[in-house]
Every structure is written in C-alpha cells, then in structure tokens.
Amino acid sequence: MRPCQRLKRILEDYCDGELKGRDKKDVELHLGECSGCGEYVHGIQNLKSALKNLHPIHTDENFIILLRERIRREAAKSYRTKRIQEIPVWRWALAAGVAAVAVFSGYRILQKGAHPLQERTPAPGIVSRTESLESVQQNDVQYVLEDLSGSSRSSAPASREALPQVQAASSDSAARERRLDQIRDQVKIVNF
C-alpha cells in the first residue's frame, strides 16, 4: 500500500527523529490508523537500521606509519623546492652562461671531429695524406705497365723482382699481351 502523499515529507522527518511534541504524537496517531503510512515508515526504519548496523571497517595497522612516511617525503620535497627558490638570480644567470659555453664548445668539438677524412686545405709545403697516396699508386701502376710492355726495362727499379711470373712469360708475346691485360684488370680493381 502507498502512504498518504501529503504526509510523506512529515513521515520522513518522523523517521529521522526530527519531529517533536504534538507533531510527533499526531503522526503516531495517524500511523495507528493508516496501514499504508505504517508500512512506509516501517520500511524506512528497517533500512536505516540495516545501514546503521553495518560493521565499520578499521584502517590497516600500518596506516599511521605509512602516513608519516608520506608526510616525511612531502616535507623533504617542499624543503628542496624552497632551497631552489632561495637561490639568487645571479647564480641562475651564471649557471646558464656556463651551460651555454659548454654546449657551444661541445658543438664545435663535434663539428670538427665528425668528418676526420674530410679534405682540408693543407698548409703550404705539406703534402696531404690522400694526395701522396694517390701519387704513389699512380707511380706504381705506371711502373708495372712500363715493365710489362718492356719499353722501359732499363729504367726499372729493384722492385722488378717482385714480378717473376710476368718476366717468365715475356718470350711469348701473345701470352704476354694476355697477361698484360690481366694485370691491367687487376690494377683497375685495386684503383677501384
């Protein structure tokens, strides 16, 4: 059954113990006569009682220890922040300047060290390493070719002994030419 709608708010106040004196007595009289309102009040009181009697839970026994630890960490953090805030501006400026110099120097060092084989203009009178290497290779190739063709055998240096196989084949001109081609190919590969 439904409660009397006009009394609903008053019944709720009655359940909360908010009614006193005559109002309370009037409601109690009404409850004796109206089963709908009686059921309504009974339902609310049952629910209130069930909620009130829920077992309260208790915090873990380490709760306060954990809280102290959190507060200690918090205090340490705020102390560090405070210390940082207390540092004068000129110190920040100095630190920024030093950092800028360090970054610039590092950049310059990296820039120089990044391409170690990069061609640089040699100082007057100094032959660069790559240049000398190329010239030595060219001289060697020239020598070998001259030596194989036999055109400049007289001017061959002592390193001629380094090519005994080629000299052994010199009697046969066709074989010599083939061998010469092979050597040319090898030289091409070396140069490559």
């Binding site: 309260p56 839970i57 208790h58 915090t59 873990d60 709760f63 306060i64």
Partner: peptide
C-alpha cells in the same frame, strides 16, 4: 578520524585499498 573517514570513503568507492 582515520576510521570514520575510511568508512565514509569505503562506502563511496567500494574498495578498501582505494579508500585508505
């Protein structure tokens, strides 16, 4: 306040660890 507050929050969230 630790127990009353934990009860309040526990009923609100439904999880004890979160409540603590």
């Amino acid at each position: 306040y630790k127990d009353p507050l934990t009860n309040f929050v526990y009923h609100y969230l439904g999880d004890r660890i979160d409540a603590e």
